[in-house]
């Protein structure tokens, strides 16, 4: 089966450039990291299959995020009742607001890089433990021989501090 020859390369560039945003969008809508990975991958496959429908020069993010949102909604309909998932109307609301962030998603990530550089070593180590191998809260607590609640509280404070740092960075950039 032949592909659309025109602009394939440019399409792949757009797809590559938007990978992080797409993953972030899916993360905003699903809670189980495995679901996020599955839907993210599935979205990529679908985008590639629909490549011929995309008109270069139009808004790739608008198009791709709509596909991702559709994939999430389809996925949520299939989730069992025992799984935590937002109601579909709230998913649509959050998706729309995330999509509107557009490039600021990339800006936030850039700001995070700087914030992480400033993060004290022990806090960074905890993040590495938590995210390094998808380690669960319980496993982290076990390794550190600390109560789960304490680890959860610490992670909350680190995230809160990082969010505040990101906001400050973005505000600094906007006034400089």
């Amino acid at each position: 089966m032949d592909i659309e020859p025109n602009n394939l390369e440019a399409f792949l560039c757009e797809l590559t450039r938007h990978q992080r945003r797409l993953r972030g969008l899916v993360r905003c809508l699903l809670f189980d990291p495995r679901d996020v990975e599955d839907v993210w991958q599935d979205t990529n496959v679908l985008l590639l299959r629909k490549a011929h429908e995309f008109q270069l020069g139009t808004d790739f993010w608008a198009w791709a995020s709509a596909v991702a949102r559709y994939q999430v909604l389809t996925h949520c309909k299939l989730l069992g009742r025992d799984r935590l998932a937002f109601d579909l109307d709230l998913i649509a609301m959050i998706a729309a607001e995330t999509e509107q962030l557009g490039e600021s998603i990339d800006e936030r990530r850039d700001a995070l890089q700087l914030c992480l550089e400033k993060l004290p070593g022990p806090q960074r180590q905890l993040l590495e433990m938590r995210y390094g191998a998808g380690t669960s809260l319980e496993e982290v607590a076990g390794k550190l021989e600390r109560p789960v609640g304490s680890i959860r509280q610490t992670l909350y404070r680190i995230r809160e501090a990082l969010l505040a740092c990101i906001e400050r960075r973005i505000n600094l950039d906007s006034v400089s």
Binding site: R23, C28, I94, E97, I105, L116, E128, Y131
Partner: peptide, 29 residues
């Protein structure tokens, strides 16, 4: 709360994006 309050939704989105970025930053299999 998220359904009713736009500020909470914004905070939610920012936190989830942060989580995705942290997972990306640190994760390895």
């Amino acid at each position: 709360r998220l359904r009713q309050d736009a500020a909470s939704r914004r905070q939610f989105i920012h936190l989830m994006l942060l989580d995705a970025d942290l997972a990306d930053e640190f994760s390895t299999e």
